[in-house]
């Protein structure tokens, strides 16, 4: 008897396998998170305990730390799969490779982006972020970090075949991260002084949705180039 494998089954299987891999390889999961925490803690030490200065810097520092730690986490997205050959098998699957790649990006965000958001209130506390800005900060990270993972994936796809591609990857994706950083930090900034941040938040949501639409295809094309 023949079993026809559907795309949705393959998507779920990829999701499942990657979550399991993340669970078994926890260091990849904790490194970016530790980095996020360390940047914020060191900043608080470096600048000093004066709460007016810290709270002014808080929106920017939190967003920069979040951005850098997503960048740090990106390297793991396709590296192992490229080296062990399973990326090749993914591309040679008759299923739409962009969908399977999207599954990988979703898992990547779940295990690196989401923990960062969950820990961010503690960082905000350390940075003396005014109380009324917590909600906006969480929302801005929730809406903005998916765009970072999605855009970053294209860069990782392009550099997958290059050893020690960290610097090149940063050069490629940081310019594309900047709009997310600007609107993310400015959303938090606005709400610290009691202004509405909805404009910036809508823009962040738009960034994420647009990248959700286009980057899986771009990433799949980028990986095909890397494998060529």
């Amino acid at each position: 008897m023949m079993l026809k494998q559907s795309l949705s089954q393959a998507f779920l299987a990829e999701l499942h396998a990657d979550l399991r891999l993340a669970y078994r390889n926890k260091s990849a999961l904790f490194n970016p998170l530790m980095f996020f925490i360390m940047v914020a803690v060191l900043f608080a030490f470096g600048v000093g305990p004066e709460s007016t200065v810290l709270s002014k810097l808080a929106p920017g520092v939190i967003w920069v730390a979040a951005l850098l730690s997503s960048l740090l986490a990106l390297d793991h997205l396709f590296r192992e799969d490229y080296e062990n050959g399973s990326l090749e098998q993914l591309i040679l699957s008759p299923h739409a490779s962009s969908a399977l790649i999207l599954a990988k990006i979703i898992v990547h965000w779940l295990v690196t982006g989401l923990p960062l958001i969950l820990i961010s209130p503690f960082i905000a506390m350390m940075m003396q972020l005014p109380g009324q800005a917590y909600g906006t900060m969480l929302l801005s990270l929730l809406l903005g970090t998916p765009a970072l993972s999605l855009i970053g994936a294209v860069g990782v796809g392009l550099t997958a075949g290059i050893k020690r591609s960290g610097l090149l990857l940063s050069l490629l994706v940081i310019p594309l991260f900047i709009p997310v950083l600007i609107f993310g930090a400015s959303a938090v900034q606005a709400s610290t002084i009691g202004l509405s941040a909805s404009g910036q938040l809508y823009l962040l949501a738009a960034f994420s949705l647009l990248s959700l639409l286009f980057t899986p295809f771009a990433t799949s094309a980028a990986i095909k180039i890397s494998l060529n």
């Binding site: 494998q5 192992e80 080296e83 299923h95």
Partner: peptide, 23 residues
């Protein structure tokens, strides 16, 4: 390359490969 994910067991790897196939 074998296309096996290092942290998955033999059977998990094979199950994933099966899903990659069209049929």
């Amino acid at each position: 390359t074998n296309g096996l994910k290092a942290e998955l067991s033999a059977i998990e790897n094979l199950q994933l490969s099966r899903q990659y196939l069209g049929q």
